[in-house]
Design a protein around this nucleic acid. Structure first.
Lengths: 215, 215
DNA sequence: AGATATTTTTAGTTTTGTCTAAATTTAAAT
DNA sequence: ATTTAAATTTAGACAAAACTAAAAATATCT
């Protein structure tokens, strides 16, 4: 499989989580910063290889094959992110782009050994689950901070938006995976939250609260 | 720089060590398992980018730029090999192909951090020197086992042939980097050596002795 | 339902890196 | 010094992955 094909598969995989009954050509083009016509070309190719099932004008879904392949790419991406953060001391906002390259390295033995070296992690540095070598994903019942109940203790288990910008903001606010949250008050006017984070009171906007997963 | 361009540069770099006054088109084609006509095309492109100096029919040499770029690719290759052997427990005969892919990952920060993580190694698992980030290479005065003097103690510092086949043979013979050698006898008829290796006497063919570096 | 807008596909080009086959240059050999 | 052989380059073609512009299908709106 080429790097380009892998990138398409991965994007279709991610978009499928939001629109499971068919991913739009334009949506794929948007994610890959390419043109719709290029996407159509590639969908035909992926369809010929039985990685997606595609009917003109009707959007695209992953086949069994494509689904597994996509999860293997995600597995590689997230394992490399763990390596970069845990072993090479990168911060969590720096690793995405490098992992985008590393995820296309082919060797299966490499990934198995990397997995073992890292201690078979279940989650990447942003709290996203790492599929195992069979493609199985550990499900957790996380919820958004904006949906949290008042005066209950939660801890941060992930971020929804993992853009460098957002992650740097969290660093500045000393919010990390594992941070302890308790929502003290919810301002009904603008949904701003008053939250006790690691025993410090902070005001959290709705936008932030909508991008933090807690448990 | 594309992966293909990098592969050409690297091959020209290696071939330059043997023919410093100009590398042949055919030699490059042989190393890359491609056709001479493809090489000619690429040499023009590399020449336009001032990475090689190239005159029709006269062979090719690296420019200052090309020389440095090539050394950076070699640096990446060899650092990844150290990682694979030291951290992921690959054996020295398994790492070349994987490193061929990893050497094309772009990030400079990644290589700097990897270098630090590995403890700034000077040599890769086959005893080849790792250029530092300035492209400087630590020179050592190694010699081939076939050139070693009788009854002098040496230790193994590298291999000339790093094919999987040869490396596996060395593993079987329990010869590794650091092994202690003393040539007991040299058979003048076929240049076979009797060598004491790690306090064990062994017969070493001329072909083997011509591919082992000692010091 | 019909008109308009949006999305998607087709058709035809471009670029990169490769190839084959033919032409040219250099090297070797009688 | 020719002739022959080997190495190299040119010319033209192809596949992959992208693009533009135009055509076709679907969705939306009054």
């Amino acid at each position: 499989m080429t790097t380009s094909e892998e990138n398409y598969l991965k994007v279709i995989y991610h978009l499928s989580q939001v629109s499971p009954k068919g991913v739009n050509t334009n949506a794929i083009a948007g994610m890959l910063e390419t043109k719709a016509s290029s996407v159509t070309d590639m969908l035909k190719k992926l369809s010929d290889k039985d990685l997606v099932s595609y009917q003109k004008y009707q959007g695209v879904t992953l086949t069994e094959n494509g689904f597994l392949s996509a999860k293997m790419i995600v597995r590689k991406h997230r394992l490399w992110e763990v390596f970069l953060v845990d072993k090479l001391q990168f911060s969590w906002d720096e690793v995405h782009e490098i992992a985008e390259e590393l995820e296309h390295i082919q060797s299966i033995a490499l990934i198995d050994k990397l997995d073992a070296f890292l201690g078979h992690p279940d989650f990447d540095p942003h709290g996203d689950p790492i599929p195992n070598r069979q493609g199985e994903i550990k499900k957790t019942s996380k919820l958004l901070l904006s949906e949290a109940e008042l005066n209950q203790e939660y801890h941060c288990v992930g971020v929804k938006d993992s853009s460098s910008e957002f992650l740097k903001y969290l660093d500045k606010q000393k919010i990390a995976l594992g941070s302890v949250f308790k929502v003290i008050e919810k301002e009904s006017f603008d949904d701003t939250l008053t939250v006790e984070i690691n025993a410090q009171e902070k005001i959290i906007s709705n936008k932030i609260a909508n991008n933090l997963y807690v448990q």
